[in-house]
Computed example of a mutant assay.
Amino acid sequence: MANRSETRDGQLDPDLSAIMSERRRLINLAYRLLGSLSDAEDVVQETYVRWYAMDPARRDAVESPGAWLTTVAGRICLNLLGSARARRERYVGEWLPEPLPERREWTDGVTADPADRITLDESVDMAFLVVLESMTPVERVAFILHDVFRYAFAEVAVIVGRSPAACRQLASSARRRVRESQVPAGPTSAQAGIVRDFKEAWAAKDVSALVGLLDPEATVVADGGGLAGALRRPITGRERLADACLNVARLAPDQTLLERTVNGRPGLVAQRDGVTVTVFAFRVAGGRITHIWAMRNPEKLRPWTDGDRGGVRVSAGRRGDLPVGR
Rank of each mutant, 00 (worst) to 15 (best):
M295W: 07
L213G: 00
Q11V: 14
L301K: 02
D147T: 12
L100H: 03
E98S: 04
P266E: 10
N247M: 10
Q191G: 10
P323T: 01
S208C: 04
Y91D: 09
D9I: 03
T107Y: 10
V324K: 00
V110W: 08
L12V: 15
R75V: 05
T219H: 07
I27W: 09
L129T: 09
C245H: 14
C77P: 00
G317K: 00
R288L: 08
K199E: 13
D13T: 03
A18L: 13
D9L: 05
K205R: 14
A228W: 10
V207E: 14
L12C: 13
S172V: 12
R23K: 15
W68A: 11
G237K: 06
A185G: 10
L301I: 05
A53Y: 14
P303F: 12
V44G: 01
V138M: 02
L33G: 08
R176Y: 13
K199A: 15
G186A: 00
G310I: 09
G237Y: 05
E133M: 14
Y151E: 08
F198P: 02
A127P: 03
E239H: 11
M126E: 12
V284G: 02
V269L: 10
A18G: 14
N79D: 14
Q271T: 13
P184A: 00
I118W: 03
V248H: 05
Q255L: 07
L80Y: 08
P14R: 04
R103K: 08
L258F: 09
S38M: 00
W293Q: 02
L29P: 08
M295C: 11
P114F: 06
D308I: 11
G311L: 04
A252G: 06
T188A: 11
D15P: 06
G286L: 03
V44R: 01
L213W: 01
E133T: 13
A294W: 01
G264T: 02
G82F: 06
S21I: 05
A174S: 05
D121F: 01
A166C: 05
E122G: 14
G325K: 00
D215V: 01
G325F: 00
R58M: 15
A142S: 15
A18W: 12
Q169R: 15
S38Q: 08
D60F: 13
A281R: 11
V43C: 03
V248R: 10
P137W: 12
L33Y: 07
V195I: 15
M135C: 07
R250L: 15
L145V: 02
G317D: 01
G229F: 05
A228Q: 13
V158E: 15
T278H: 11
G274Q: 06
S172P: 06
N3T: 09
V279K: 01
R265W: 04
G320R: 07
A204C: 11
L120T: 12
T276R: 01
D113K: 13
G274T: 04
N3F: 08
Q191Y: 08
R50E: 15
V158W: 09
M126F: 13
V72Q: 10
I144E: 11
R296N: 08
C167G: 05
R150P: 08
E299Y: 12
L33N: 07
G274D: 06
L241Y: 04
D321W: 12
A127K: 06
T71Y: 07
V220H: 01
P184M: 00
D273M: 03
A61T: 08
L214C: 02
E155G: 11
